[in-house]
Every structure is written in C-alpha cells, then in structure tokens.
Amino acid sequence: MINMEKQRTNGIEMLRAEKIVKHFGNLTVLDGIDLSVQRGQVVVIIGPSGSGKTTLLRCINHLEKIDSGRIYIEGEMIGYREVNSKLVEDREATIARIRSQIGFVFQRFNLFPHMTALENVIEAPIHVLHQPKAEVKERAVALLEKVGLADKADAYPHKLSGGQQQRVAIARALAMNPKLMLFDEATSALDPELVGEVLKVMDQLAKEGMTMIVVTHEMGFAREVADEVIFMDHAVIVEEGTPEQIFDNPQHERTRAFLSMIL
C-alpha cells in the first residue's frame, strides 16, 4: 500500500478521528468514521450531497458536536475531555484555543462585511493571539499578495467578486498560522470562471506542505493535488486510497456509480 508507506515516512499524525457518530434527530449523518491525516498530507473527501462530508469537516473543529467518538489534533482531543470514561464538553476557552490552530474555509466565504479585506485578515491574530499590530499587518499584506489580492487590501467584501472573497477568506485563515486547513466546498458557491483562481491558491498551499482536508466536487483538483481520496456515502467512508486507486480502479459499486455520474 503506497499510502501506508507515506504515512510511515511522514511520521507525525496531525488529525486522528475515531468512530465519529453524529445524528441530526433521527438521521445518522456520520456513522462511525475513522480518519487519520499525517502532517503535510492533502486529503480530499468526495461523495454525493448529504453523505456527511461537510458535517465531518465541521465536527473536526467542533462547529458541530459529536454524539460519540474521539477527535485528536496532534494528539490533543478537541471539543471534549474524558471524565470517568465519559465525554464532557470542554471549556469554551480550550475549544477556542484548539480551533485557533485549525483554518476553516467556508463554502459561503463568511468574510466580515464591516471590515476591509486587510482588516478581515488581521482581526484574529490581533484579538485572539494578541500579536503586535504592525507585525500582523505586515504578514497580512504578504498573505494578500500571496493570494493575488495585494491591490484589494482596502476593499470591503461586497466590492469583491466571489473568487476574490474566497481568497481573502483563505488569507484570513492562514494569518493564524494554522497547523491544519479545512476547506468546505470552497468553490461550490462560485461562478465557474472564478473556480480556477481559488483552486490555484489551494494547489499552491498544498505544494508548500500545508496539511489540508478538502471537501470538494472538483474531481480534477482531487486527482492532481490529493495524496489520499476518501469517498463517503450514506454517513460512512466507503472507500479510500490514492487518486489513482479511487478514480481509475474503484473497488466499490457505489464509488463507481458516483464517479460515472460526476465525471
């Protein structure tokens, strides 16, 4: 197994999820998900809508509570602590501290509309990490440059296109120097001609060695950038492997059916 080799060579486990179960009312959205992501790895999660991909991502930084299971970021459990082998939700401050190490990019960008692009980027480093403003600003300008928006630093979000907004959102997440970046259908809300500019930034990030978990419908991106592709359907991981294994030689009927519909 190529993947196992890679995991061993990489060594450090960034994320570990064990038997994650999540219900919305009577509906089971995650039914015992196990996941392990090594540092520097890019994991792409694909699957039909309603398969639980987005919920899994939201559980990883505790935007959703889980009903059972464990999620560890670099060995530290997120969201809960164990008291007499029962899970108790963590203090807000603890959850916030762990979240500050995980970047999250939303489908709908969620930029702060009352702040300029630059203000969006510097907000959390200044007010959460209490870093000096001048230093943060310098880094923010560099980040905006990196995502190709140096000239838009003073623009308010509503003056930016969707693709530009999403790139600002990526810069905002990166400003926290995250260990791990989560992308939740980052290009799904974009006009087709704007998808490329966002994928380019994500591709560049992956090349720089950022650990990423990406939920997407962009199969081209998955094939080219992913170290590992996970196919989810009906709240479970049906199949996982290298892009070649999943796209060229899928083992499961459901994977084949999904890919034939989408490709």
Binding site: F104, L111, R172
Partner: peptide, 17 residues
C-alpha cells in the same frame, strides 16, 4: 448571518469577543 459567528469561532474567537 449565523455564518458570521461560525467564521469568528473558527478563527479561535470566544463568544464574548
């Protein structure tokens, strides 16, 4: 928009901040 609170939380902000 509830997404605003989620974005703030995802950046490590606590509720009051």
């Amino acid at each position: 928009d509830p997404g605003q609170m989620e974005a703030a939380k995802s950046l490590g902000m606590r509720y009051a901040l």
